[in-house]
Amino acid sequence: MEISFKNVDYTYQPNTPFEHKAIRNLSFKVASGTFVAIVGHTGSGKSTVIQHLNGLLTPTYGEVSIGDYKLTPEKKIKNIKDLRKRVGVVFQYPEHQLFEETIEKDIAFGPKNFGANEEAIKERIIEVMQSVNLPEQLLTRSPFDLSGGQMRRAAIAGVLAVDPEVLVLDEPTAGLDPRGQRDMMEMFYRLHHSKKLTTFLVTHSMEDALEYADHVIVLDKGTKFMEGKPSEVFLRQKELNEVQLDIPEVIKILFKVKEKLGISLSYKGQSTYDLACELKAALGGGSTNE
């Protein structure tokens, strides 16, 4: 689904001493099927933005459109449930939302709420267990018997079971060990392509934003600081550092190679190995302009 923000403001507790403007005058447009990364340091308004995507919040000014749904401050939309069916949100530490006696029931909870029939739910459960890489035998177990990583997968399965068109991920890899993090991101990347999803990833990992996203939106103090292709946005090291963000390691090292050794290589998504080969060729090329 195509998603756009038009001059959106969101204010928490307006007209009180605790008033707080979380986002201001935010505009952007995302085409259907895009993998979007939203980055910005804590308090930049990232989670306020994503809560607009399924109508948990409605803007205090401006307009948010998600496909045909429009969120404006004037009127509440009636078919909010329909919107939430189409936009799945995986919150931070999603394992905290598990509550049923068995994993099967917990996964079925979402589809049931959205009115899917028993038959369809059964099929979905099998499918999503495969997607999140959990063995079917676990279905009858209590979610609280699982390991931390498995619990998270079960919770994600519960969101996927609704079969959303838009998937919103709020730091889905927080707290996992390196292998767990990589497996999880690979899983979302696969789903993004196989299900032709529109994906929003909120992340602190510039490496993930660079590796998986087509488009990156950088937020600072509730406003859009920059946006564009990750490989272009992350070249703007100075500006990003100003808003307390780092750039991916690979780009950082290329900058340093240029600065210290006078060799300029550009990043175009090459693997570490290819980069090593390019470096070797450039270093051994005998250019002695020092």
């Binding site: 390196p178 390691e249 690979v250 950082k252 090292i253 190995y273 980069l275 090593a276 470096l279 070797k280």
Partner: peptide, 29 residues
């Protein structure tokens, strides 16, 4: 065993595998 080395170490590893001598395993840029 489920861990991962930093990017710098990975790059150093790949460099030495293609014949760039890395004598002192780098810890940083």
């Amino acid at each position: 065993i489920g861990l991962d080395i930093p990017f710098i170490a990975k790059l150093a590893d790949d460099l030495s595998s293609i014949g760039v001598p890395i004598k002192n395993q780098p810890l940083n840029h």
